[in-house]
Design a protein around this nucleic acid. Structure first.
Lengths: 238, 238, 238, 238
DNA sequence: CATGAATGAGACTTCATTCAT
DNA sequence: TATGAATGAAGTCTCATTCAT
């Protein structure tokens, strides 16, 4: 898809003379094209099973060219992750800070926005890659924890706290609750790049429905109103 | 070294048939030992990054011996998955059928039991392996869908339907809701074999707390009782 | 030459049963065969210009087999050098200690022996290899200095000192004189593996003649007897 | 960056022809700068282990520019050798022809001069390069033999013959004796570019002392005057 | 049954060489 | 001229698989 062949050279020619020559433009664009190709393939086949040459070919260059930009396969992986780290959270960062309505609505907007801007995007492959390779690249895993996981949890936790502070939410423990909010969202992302990509399972998971249901579910719960006598529920003796 | 001649076979023959001689027992146990070793390593390092020789070594045999039992690395992977497929669900299969109390409690018992018997078990690595390799081995993915994903969804869906039918639960759409129930449970399993195995992130996720909170959350929701005016929540225009 | 094909299997079959099986015998012989092949090719084409596969082929095995014995090309080089280090000196080590005749004769025997046992042997390629690669592998160079160069110098120096002490030789400075004795010997070795291997230059250098002349030269000098008035000779002002 | 337009060419044109403009001078100097850089690096790391780009960088130009002057790496090597071939001998060529004193002194002046003008010079790396690459590039080796080795031998041989003819020297065979005179000189050169460049071995070899001792040694020999009874020395039976 | 030596296809990486600018 | 981005052949090294013992 992003093979953008030499066909764009004419376009370049119409650019004002102060614009860089096509060769220059390519040089600038190369890293992103390579990272996009790598993201796609690492997400599809996994890091180990992806050949450098495939990445290069998908980016429309030769093997050697890739090495002009990234000194090793591992460096390429790191660059892919670094490139997309911000995007996983940027969308929601200041939404929480500026939002003014009821927290339930904030939560809803947050999750839907996230799916639109991230989950439904190639960047969503990052989580699958991380999951598969975390143990092979502990530094990257730590990096990811610091830059993505923890901030995401903090974002959701602050949102929950807001609801509790404003008297909208019950005072559930925010950390585990945040995890429960995050989990379906991550699940969708992972599913999209694994089973979801295998044709026959599309009907099993419908992202929009899952998210919409999640909002309803976590806000109102399963139980009918007034049926508060059901619990407490204790874990079974193992 | 293994020059112990066939002379010990007669000895073995004198042993009672219910307690096979060590050599026999070994021969019988080999496949399971190999599959256990493969499960561990495939889960830790991924399929492609695991060497056949490592699997053999972890099972205490030589490379050649592994090939006496499984004709290829891919066959080994398939055997690993097949070996553990049942275990992922067996625990809960007839619990639903025989359970007699309130559905909220059934749900709780189901999830806790599952974590005790599966999530907290080496078999939990299966899901990580599947996730990473689904697209590389579509037949395996289909197999997994048929044998695990769909039954699991059916199980949870039937449980939800039971609650609705009995007037305990609100009539949420069962498929997406089932997904939302499943997601945190899968999330915990995956986390355990990826980030969770990288030392510093243990505090971030506490499986027991997450599950307990999930039960509470999905049963009662976040909203304070009577605060039913908050919704409806519509997804934002993207 | 050392390709020793499977033709030696029959020979192995005639060996007493306590002898290792052919496969075992090969396993034991492999390292030496590989080192011999490597010595030959490194000497011929240089380290960098020799391909691992060529070494393996010359030893009669495949690329992969070489890596069962030596983990890298550099390790192979080090092993080659280590394998032949002793041989460069062993010949003369105790000759000096036990020799009983005039020192001039000791010197003569020493140099001729050395050429027979080392200079005229594949091991002589070691010095060419070292010379070419010393700066690329400083540890190896230091190793070589410690194990070969210094001992050789010490051997010659002690021989010279013996002559001086016994009143046979003039009291020339032993270190530089030792170098002058060593130089033609090393020169012959190097020549043999470089220009000497290029057909047309065989007549230029005749090892036996060079060594014989060297003995005569360093013992009696060029000057006619009684012509001691010629010197002193001062270096020219540069 | 190099956008300085052709406008400066007229400026260059106004410069006196004996002092070419910087650009012109540069253009003329390029080949020599490139050859000097190549000599240095080929001598340091060997031909195969030196990258074209390193040579270009050391000469202060880009890879592409080097190819404007030399069509291939091999051509560069040949040019390096050709460039320095004369220098190895020029110094002594007519010294022999014009020298008027005793031959012992001529010999001394010859060797010391040679060390000052060649051995102690970057050109000395040539011999190391040739030694390493002779067998990979037979034509170059032949070239070297014709242009350097044989003339050098002829030079020394004629010098020896002069001494014999004038009744100064004993009538040793001139060819092998010439080799023995040459060997320490070559040894010093080679050492300087291999082991000598590895820090700890500087004390082992002191060029000036080696040469001074050589003169003394080859002129007077080791034996005390009158000790002519020592020989004949026969090579040992191998 | 079990072993582990041997193989060779295939992956990563380097670098001499080309060529559009 | 000069540049340096791009190429792809070639080299090092890995590892799934085979097979003689």
């Amino acid at each position: 898809m992003s093979q953008s062949p030499p066909a764009d050279l004419p376009d370049a020619a119409t650019a004002p003379p102060s614009a860089p020559a096509p060769r220059q433009r390519r040089k600038q664009a190369r890293p992103h094209e390579l990272l996009a190709a790598a993201l796609t393939l690492f997400g599809e086949k996994g890091f180990a099973a992806t050949r450098i040459e495939e990445v290069a070919a998908l980016a429309g260059v030769s093997k050697g060219t890739l090495y002009l930009y990234y000194p090793s396969k591992e460096a390429l992986l790191k660059a892919v992750i670094r490139e997309h780290l911000g995007q996983l959270l940027d969308a929601g960062e200041n939404l929480v800070a500026t939002f003014d309505g009821p927290t339930s609505q904030l939560l809803s907007v947050l999750l839907h926005t996230w799916w639109d801007r991230v989950g439904n995007t190639p960047a969503s492959a990052i989580h699958k890659i991380m999951l598969s390779e975390a143990r092979n690249f502990p530094e990257i895993a730590a990096f990811y924890n610091d830059e993505v996981t923890r901030p995401a949890q903090r974002l959701l936790a602050s949102c929950l706290q807001r609801g509790i502070d404003r008297g909208e939410f019950r005072a559930l423990p925010v950390q585990p609750t945040a995890m429960n909010l995050l989990a379906p969202v991550i699940f969708l992302m992972l599913h999209k790049h694994s089973f979801g990509a295998c044709s026959q399972s599309q009907q099993i998971v419908d992202p929009a429905a899952v998210i919409a249901t999640q909002i309803d579910l976590v806000l109102h719960g399963l139980l009918l109103q007034g049926d508060s006598a059901t619990t407490p529920v204790a874990p079974p003796a193992s």
